[in-house]
Design a protein around this nucleic acid. Structure first.
Length: 257
DNA sequence: ATGGTAGTAAAACTA
């Protein structure tokens, strides 16, 4: 069995105590982090290695940044999502092989506000991700693409769909781009095992959103077909979100036989 | 109509 978790920590330095608590209590084999918000040299590597994890990071000053933690060695890292001819400066993608499984930590662009180059970048990034998933499928490699997708796949993933109708996370074009990836044959691990609507992974810091369960489901674990056949459990771990000084996202996890 | 919060990092930007 391998347990995989993904978590947008919103600064790994600010969240280090919570991250260490999560590693100790949840004991995941592989952890995919987003928004580490630091350069590689500032990542708290020693504290995490002390708990028995290998560490790979793609950092950036102040913004973005992704990482992979794994009990087994992390091999053959790919540090940018292909398809931008090296012009994509943003640290949003890290893919590597862990024990025969190809795993990617994904921080998909938010895309707000609409009508700007930010939204165009989001949709272009999603098309690059679709191409990458297609290439992994054609190589017949078992893989997991997980992280902060910044897409609510349907209105059932939004606490107030009307209020979010103009948000980049809920646009029909964003949702279509997400479906184009899933429709390659991937499985949304959490939704596959529990399609209960309104199960969220993110709650804004503002307006007492957490206390009122005003959230969004935007963190997803997508499994390749062979990997989906091994899926035995999945869920959203809301415990970290309820702590003081929490990230605005909470971990999502799955187990593969 | 505005500001409501958090993080980074030093005023503004991202989310």
């Amino acid at each position: 069995m391998v347990k995989i978790a993904t978590w947008n920590v919103n600064s790994v330095k600010a969240r280090l105590p919570h991250l260490l608590d999560f590693l100790k209590s949840s004991e995941p084999d592989i952890v995919l982090l987003q928004e580490i918000k630091c350069v590689d040299e500032e990542f708290p590597r020693l504290e995490i290695e002390a708990l028995g994890y290998n560490v790979a990071t793609v950092g950036q000053k102040s913004y973005n940044g992704v990482a992979i933690l794994a009990r087994e060695p992390i091999k053959d890292p790919l540090r940018r999502l292909p398809g931008a001819d090296g012009s994509d400066e943003q640290a949003r993608y890290l893919e590597a092989t862990i024990g025969g499984l190809r795993v990617a930590s994904i921080y998909l662009p938010n895309g707000n506000p609409l009508g700007t180059e930010k939204f165009d970048y989001k949709l272009a990034w999603m098309e690059r991700l679709r191409t990458r998933a297609q290439d992994l499928l054609s190589e017949e490699r078992p893989f997991v693409l997980a992280g902060d997708y910044n897409v609510c796949p349907t209105d059932a993933d939004v606490f107030d769909p009307i209020a979010f109708a103009g948000d980049a996370l809920c646009q029909p074009t964003s949702r279509a781009a997400f479906r184009r990836i899933v429709n390659l044959g991937l499985t949304d691990a959490v939704h596959a095992l529990d399609p209960t609507p309104h199960q969220y992974t993110f709650w804004d810091y503002q307006a007492r959103s957490w206390e009122q369960d005003h959230g969004l489901r935007i963190d997803h674990i997508l499994l390749s077909p062979q990997t989906a056949d091994r899926l035995t459990a999945a869920g959203i771990d809301k415990t970290p979100r309820g702590k003081p000084k929490a990230s605005d996202h909470t971990p999502v996890w799955c187990e593969l036989a």
